[in-house]
Design a protein around this nucleic acid. Structure first.
Lengths: 204, 204
DNA sequence: TTCTAAAATTGAGTCAATTCTGTTTTTATG
DNA sequence: CATAAAAACAGAATTGACTCAATTTTAGAA
């Protein structure tokens, strides 16, 4: 009998997220005041804090939605990778990078990343760590796939390699969102250059 | 004739840093109130903001001191590296990691990292980026040294390799400071395992 | 020594996130 | 349908980082 109350709850959650997403986009994270989000969502300030522990968690919920889409988009590449190690990696990481800026601005990413290191045990901090792990796992899966096809040496430590590739990409992405003038093609080229060393080492 | 005024200025800087370092250690970053730091340093709140743009910059100044010590400690290894690629890397990165927790708690690192991504154009954000670059450069210098000795292939892209190694270590360190129960030996072992792939690829 | 402009300091005031407490709404029970 | 406990809400109060106008201190000239 989870009726009215549950429905209202889900509805308010949605309204808060939508209001916040709109205001974050328009005014930036700092510029979007909690009172304004509350007004836009037609709830009170107190209610927002009943749903989210702090302002950062609201952004966190939005970011999580986006990263889950990125993970979904990556599945296709893992299932059917380009027949070349360098291209396969570039394609998967390319999807991560391009998708990541679809809905979220660099400023929103900066805030989200900051919050996830500042409060690693908060709801968003934990969710973010889990998402990072899923991305690492997906890269590892791609490597396993390439090994199965016979494009990557069998004796490579896939786990360590996946971590290495993800960590490097992630750090490059962090530096990328820190500089407003940085462009995606340059980022991807730099990562390709770094991965070239690995590709040479692991290809059959 | 840079007399009294300059001396008082330096003295106040020192007092603020010392007061902040003590309170950050005792009460944590959030727990250390600006008023308390001001009282401890025997200056007014306004004066603190005359010296530092915001609370984060005070922490930033402390972190910068520490990272500079780390850089200094690294010089010795670059000048005289162990005669084995894996050990050379492990020694240098080991110094970075061990030194980094000498004065700063994990919590202080979390805050510092968060601030540097949140405000990349603030004084500390810029300083932090520069420090990261210096560390990357030092790793690149170690690789060049190993190439000169003949332990690393000549045709390796040292720049890209330095970035790869630094980015991976840095990301591992970030995850490390996010988990209070994470231990240094495990961190170093994980990084060694990741670097093993690279070592195998670049050794002569 | 005395005076003045520039530099630095001060602390009360502002602003916005978060907390707290009393009120209202929902659910479950007789 | 009445009602009491539980859950959720509202918005006023609190808190703490940061600002700013008034005041004090310093440097250097006369």
């Amino acid at each position: 009998m989870s009726g009215l109350r549950a429905r209202q709850k889900a509805d308010r959650h949605r309204r808060i997220i939508e209001a916040a997403a709109e205001l974050f986009r328009e005014a930036g994270y700092e510029g979007a005041k909690i009172e304004a989000i509350a007004a836009q969502a037609e709830v009170s300030v107190g209610t927002i804090y009943n749903y989210y522990q702090n302002k950062g968690d609201i952004l966190g919920a939005i970011v999580s939605l986006e990263v889950n889409e990125v993970l979904n988009a990556g599945r296709g590449v893992v299932a059917n990778p380009p027949a070349n190690v360098g291209d396969a990696l570039d394609t998967l990481l390319g999807i991560y990078i391009e998708h990541s800026l679809h809905y979220l601005s660099k400023e929103m990413w900066r805030q989200a990343m900051a919050i996830s290191t500042q409060l690693p045990d908060g709801p968003f901090g934990q969710a973010y760590t889990a998402l990072d792990r899923s991305l690492t796992e997906q890269i590892r899966a791609l490597i396993a796939r390439l090994q199965a096809i016979g494009l990557v040496k069998q004796d490579i430590d896939g786990q360590a390699l996946g971590e290495l590739i993800f960590n490097n990409m992630n750090m490059m992405f962090i530096e990328f969102v820190k500089r407003d003038e940085a462009k995606i093609p340059e980022l991807r080229a730099a990562i390709r250059r770094q991965n070239r060393i690995l590709v040479a080492a692991i290809g059959v």
